[in-house]
Computed example of a mutant assay.
Amino acid sequence: MNTDVAPPLGWWQQTCRLAAATAVGTAAWLSMGVLLSRGEGDGAGSWFLVGDPLVALGCLAALLWRRRFPLAVAVTVVIASAASALATGAALMALCSVSTRRRPVEIGVVVVVYVTASQFTEGFYSVQSPPGTIWFQLALPALTAGIAVAVGTAIGARRVEVRSLRDRAESAEREQTARAAQTRALERNRIAREMHDVLAHRISLVAMQAGVLDHRRDLGAEESRVLVRGIAEGSHQALEELRDVLGVLRADPGHPEPPQPSLDRIPDLVADAHASGLDVTLADAVTGTPPDVVGRTGYRVVQEGLTNAAKHAPGAHIRITLDGTVGGTLEVGVRNGPATASVRPPASGFGLLGLAERVDLAGGELSHHPTADDGYALTARLPWPRPGHERRA
């Protein structure tokens, strides 16, 4: 950004500043009139009444272009002010304006021109000066020029400070907008993972039960009723869980989210899988209660493993292993044998991608690979810090 360009002025500000320059010039012009009325001037009456105001009017008009051509206007006005006492205010205003740029060379040039031009005023007004006043004739314009320079430099410094504050505010606003957009994106990703974790498991079980009804023609009436009841209950639970996830979107910012599942809910997953016809066994060797993030991530690993096994290996035996203790690691494994059914749904891969993100955020490691017996193994290792270490972190 160019700091030499002053902000534009409105017509009211422009008028007020020209009026101030006119007021200062009027005071100098009246003082000169007093000296002339006392007979201290000789033959300058016509110039005082006609020429002086015309020159001052031209100087005031030139000030309208001082922001576009600051140095040229300043030099022109201070030279012309030597022929017009009424233009003194315009000269000081031009000097103040060029000082706002805070360029020492330009300021020095205009000050020297102003002080030098002021020495030729006697050529237009033959005011008799007492002997030995040459230093006074140099000191007075130098003093007034110094005041104008000081005021202009302060105004320029203030403009730079205001511009800097404005730039900082705009930068902070842009950063806040970027952070808000990033937060929204992260929240959308989190909700997408939650919806996948919640719905994929339920829908996969419902799809498996519906597939059994479609392919098994030898089922009795009671077995069919059990499967239909499982489909209805699974669909209802999927809708309830979806409603809970969407409720987080509609809730107020201060409204607490519903409790997230942890390792203590894994037996419920196993029970639901049993009710849906899956062959699942659970080996739990965990001692203690893990932190919320670790427990929730372990739950999602088991949920994703059951979902994938139900979709891609229907009828296979599934073994879930949990092992861990405080101060060590939590190891979660879901392993299934080869599929006994030939119909398998297409794989999207989004579940494992989202699960890998979850495990990575928890500081753990996730691995998944086929086994030697044409089965599949999903394992996760999650750090389980001690409570004291977690608080210090």
Rank of each mutant, 00 (worst) to 15 (best):
R319D: 13
H312T: 02
G324C: 05
D323S: 13
N308R: 12
A341V: 12
T325V: 09
N336V: 01
L306Y: 06
Q303H: 10
L322F: 09
D292K: 12
T329Q: 12
R319V: 11
G328V: 00
G295T: 00
G288D: 03
T340R: 14
E331I: 12
G315T: 08
A316E: 00
E304P: 06
G288T: 04
I320F: 07
K311F: 08
V293Q: 10
T297L: 13
T321N: 14
E331W: 11
T287N: 10
V301W: 02
A285I: 02
R335T: 11
T321H: 14
T321Q: 14
E304I: 08
L322C: 11
K311R: 15
P314N: 08
G298E: 01
A341W: 03
G315E: 07
N336R: 03
D292A: 15
T321E: 15
H317K: 08
T340F: 10
T329N: 12
T297W: 01
N336D: 10
A310P: 00
A309M: 02
L322D: 09
P314T: 06
G333Y: 01
V301T: 05
A310H: 05
V301G: 03
A285N: 13
T340Q: 14
A285Q: 14
T287C: 10
T287Y: 06
D284S: 14
R319G: 10
G288F: 02
P338S: 15
T297A: 09
R335S: 09
R300S: 15
Y299Q: 03
P314V: 02
G328S: 10
D323L: 08
G295S: 08
Y299F: 15
G305L: 00
G324Y: 05
K311N: 14
D292S: 13
V332A: 12
A341C: 14
G324T: 06
G328N: 05
T297M: 06
G327T: 02
G295E: 04
A341M: 10
T321A: 15
D292N: 13
H317W: 01
G324E: 04
A316N: 07
T297H: 08
G327Q: 07
I318Y: 02
G333I: 06
P314E: 01
D284T: 13
T307V: 04
R296M: 11
K311E: 15
G295R: 02
T325C: 09
A316V: 04
